[in-house]
């Protein structure tokens, strides 16, 4: 025992053992089993091998494609909103103009929404997006002369509500990422640009943006994950996994419905495997693109 405690050869394996165990028991083995289950029809007390039937069923399932479409458009729109706007805010905070006190307050205020749980956020936004003409969002559009809207009953207004929640929760966090990135750019670059007589826009375009690329790629990556994995925001806004004509159904919501609510484990496993492949493909594409861009810029 004492020899073991002092052995430099054995020590690293002891240190990483908790990870090996957790990975095997809770992630790798269940995932393998899930792949097996995706080829089965599982009824209580009766398991039947059905080959690729679950996958065939999946590709013909209109609801699955609806959910996929909902997740994709949500993801794309969050990218459009949650990269340029936080980047602009970060550049403003990082600029030399403006009072430091107001900036410090601004940074704190922007960060506070990220502290809330999705449950609390959902409760508040559900009530603000309520159908009544006195609810905040209807008051706001009312000020522009638009009548009260049933936000959560229509496809596009429901999507807008989800995007508002996403922007509220993540603008501040993304801004902090960009701010950290901006502050790591050496000031010499800007001094050199000044000597060359570069304008503000040129400095942004030719110094800031290229230097910020790793941060932008990182924020892009986590935003794609967050967007494709979105489920709880919709779950809370609609008070459950059911929305009118499934306008709020996402791919994870579909997985939840098949696996947890309907307990159709064979089919749900096929759904899960397909989603995992989609995510890994996005992941791989991003890594390759990133690597290729890097070579280009050198």
């Amino acid at each position: 025992m004492r020899r073991l405690l002092y052995s430099q050869k054995a020590a690293p394996y002891f240190f990483v053992l908790p990870f090996i165990l957790t990975f095997g028991i809770f992630w790798a083995f269940p995932l393998g089993r899930s792949v097996v289950m995706s080829g089965q029809n599982i009824l209580p007390g009766q398991v039947e091998n059905v080959g690729f039937h679950n996958y065939e069923r999946l590709f013909g399932d209109r609801l699955f494609w609806l959910a996929m479409g909902n997740s994709l458009r949500y993801t794309v729109l969050t990218l459009v909103l949650l990269i340029p706007i936080p980047l602009l805010l970060a550049v403003l905070v990082n600029s030399r103009i403006g009072s430091p006190k107001i900036k410090a307050f601004f940074k704190s205020a922007m960060f506070v929404p990220a502290l809330t749980s999705v449950v609390v956020a959902g409760i508040v936004f559900r009530l603000m997006f309520s159908e009544s003409s006195t609810a905040l969002m209807n008051q706001i559009i009312g000020a522009f002369g638009i009548g009260p809207t049933k936000w959560l009953k229509n496809d596009l207004t429901g999507l807008a509500a989800l995007l508002v929640v996403a922007m509220w929760r993540w603008t501040g966090v993304n801004m902090m990422y960009f701010l950290a990135g901006l502050q790591s750019i050496p000031t010499e670059y800007y001094e050199a640009a000044d000597i060359d007589g570069a304008s503000h826009w040129q400095k942004f375009r030719y110094v800031t943006l290229p230097q910020l690329r790793p941060t932008i790629v990182y924020v892009l990556t986590i935003s794609v994950y967050g967007g494709m994995a979105m489920f709880l925001e919709s779950f809370m806004l609609y008070g459950g996994n059911n929305s009118p004509e499934n306008i709020g159904l996402t791919i994870v919501g579909y997985l939840y419905r098949q696996g947890i609510e309907k307990n159709d484990l064979g089919y749900a496993s096929a759904v899960g495997v397909v989603l995992l492949v989609v995510i890994l493909a996005i992941n791989l594409t991003q890594l390759t693109l990133n690597g290729m861009f890097r070579k280009e810029s050198r």
């Binding site: 494709m228 489920f231 749900a268 995510i279």
Partner: peptide, 11 residues
């Protein structure tokens, strides 16, 4: 880099 939501069912 895999969202938990994609692994929740096997777990």
């Amino acid at each position: 880099t895999i969202p938990f939501e994609m692994l929740m069912l096997p777990l």
